[in-house]
Write a protein that binds this DNA or RNA. Structure first.
Lengths: 174, 174
DNA sequence: TATTGTTATACTCTATAACTATA
DNA sequence: TATAGTTATAGAGTATAACAATA
C-alpha cells in the first residue's frame, strides 16, 4: 500500500535505545539509514524504467553510455567513463558489446593513436531517439504524480548530497 | 570543489535540443536523470561510511544484515531477506560467511524444521555496538553539514519516491 | 616516463530456476 | 502440493593491478 505510514521499518528495542543514546530525539530518522533510503528510492524510480530498458535490451549502464554518446560525438573512452559514471575497465568490456550490436562505432583519434573516438552509429541514434522519447514520457508521468515543484526540490537536495563528496562533484564539473 | 555550480553536467547541443523538445522548459533537470542523481547521492553519502565499514571488514550488504539482526533476534531467512533488501539466494550465501566469523548464529525453528532462526552472536552484538556508535557519529557530522531540517526534508522526499513503487513500500510495512 | 586503453583477477550482488527437506 | 531454504547458473558491475601501444 503506497499510502501506508512506514513507522515501523526499524523497531525500537533495548539495543537500539542504547546505541542511539548518542542523538536521542532524532534517532528514528537516522536509523532509517540515508544510503538505504536512497537505494530504495532509486529502485522505486527504476521500476518505472526497467520494462522500457528491457524492451530495448539495454542495461542501465548501457543506457547511461548511450545518453552520453547522444550528446557528445567522438568522445574518448576515459571521458566517456567519467561522464557515464562507469569504471574504465568496465567500459572496455561493455563498448564492444554495443559495437557488436551496431549501436556504437569507434575510430582511432588521428591526433593521438592511443585514443579512441566513440560515437553513436546511425542505428544507435535511432534507438536512442526512440528510447529517450519513451523515457521522457515516463518522467512526465512521474512529475505528474510527484508534482513539478516537489520534483525540482528533490533535484536540489540530491545536488546538495552529491556536493558532500568533493570527488564526485569534481567529476561532474566538466 | 564541493561548492562549484554543476551547470554543465550535461551539455546542450543539437542532438540534445532535438530530444528534449518534448518538454522544453524543464528539460535540463530531467536530462540530469533522477536515478543517476540518486545513485550519485547514495555514493556520496557512502563515501563517508566506506572507510568505517572496511575497517571492520563488513560489506554494505553485511552491515544491513547486522542492523536487522540487532533489532530482531531469531528472525527467519525470508523475513531477514525482506527487511535487509537482499535477495534470499544472496542471503543464503552471505549468512554462512558471517557464521564463519562467529558474528551470527543459526538454529532450526523447533516449531517448523524448515525454518532457521538467525541471530546475532555475542561477538556480533559487540561488533554492531561499536559500529553503530561510529555510524551515529558520521550521521551527526552529516547533519551538521546539511542541516537538520534539510535532512528531515530529504527523508520525507525519499519516502515519497519510495511510495511510488507499491511493491517496495509493502516490503517496508512490517 | 607517462598516458590510453585493454586484459586479468577476484569479488559482490542480482535474478531465475532447480533442488531438498520439511510441512 | 506448498513452503523454507539452498544451490547452480549466468550476468552485470566493481575495484585493482598488470600490460601493450603510443606519446
Amino acid at each position: 500500500m503506497p499510502s501506508a505510514k512506514k513507522t515501523s521499518v526499524i523497531k525500537r528495542n533495548a539495543a537500539d535505545t542504547a546505541l542511539t543514546g548518542f542523538a536521542p530525539m532524532t534517532s528514528r530518522s537516522f536509523e532509517r539509514s540515508l544510503p538505504m533510503l536512497l537505494m530504495r528510492a532509486r529502485d522505486a524510480v527504476m521500476q518505472r524504467f526497467r520494462p522500457h530498458l528491457r524492451e530495448h535490451d539495454v542495461t542501465e549502464q548501457q543506457w547511461r553510455i548511450l545518453r552520453v554518446l547522444a550528446e557528445q560525438h567522438g568522445i574518448d573512452m576515459q571521458s566517456l567513463a567519467e561522464r557515464s559514471y562507469i569504471q574504465a575497465a568496465s567500459l572496455s568490456r561493455t563498448i564492444p558489446l554495443l559495437e557488436g550490436r551496431g549501436l556504437v562505432e569507434r575510430s582511432p583519434d588521428p591526433a593521438d593513436q592511443r585514443r579512441s573516438r566513440v560515437s553513436l552509429s546511425k542505428a544507435g541514434r535511432t534507438l536512442f531517439d526512440a528510447m529517450v522519447q519513451e523515457s521522457a514520457e515516463i518522467y512526465a508521468q512521474l512529475e505528474t504524480e510527484i508534482g513539478g515543484p516537489q520534483l525540482r526540490e528533490i533535484y536540489r537536495m540530491l545536488d546538495g548530497l552529491i556536493a558532500l563528496d568533493p570527488g564526485a562533484t569534481a567529476a561532474s564539473d566538466d
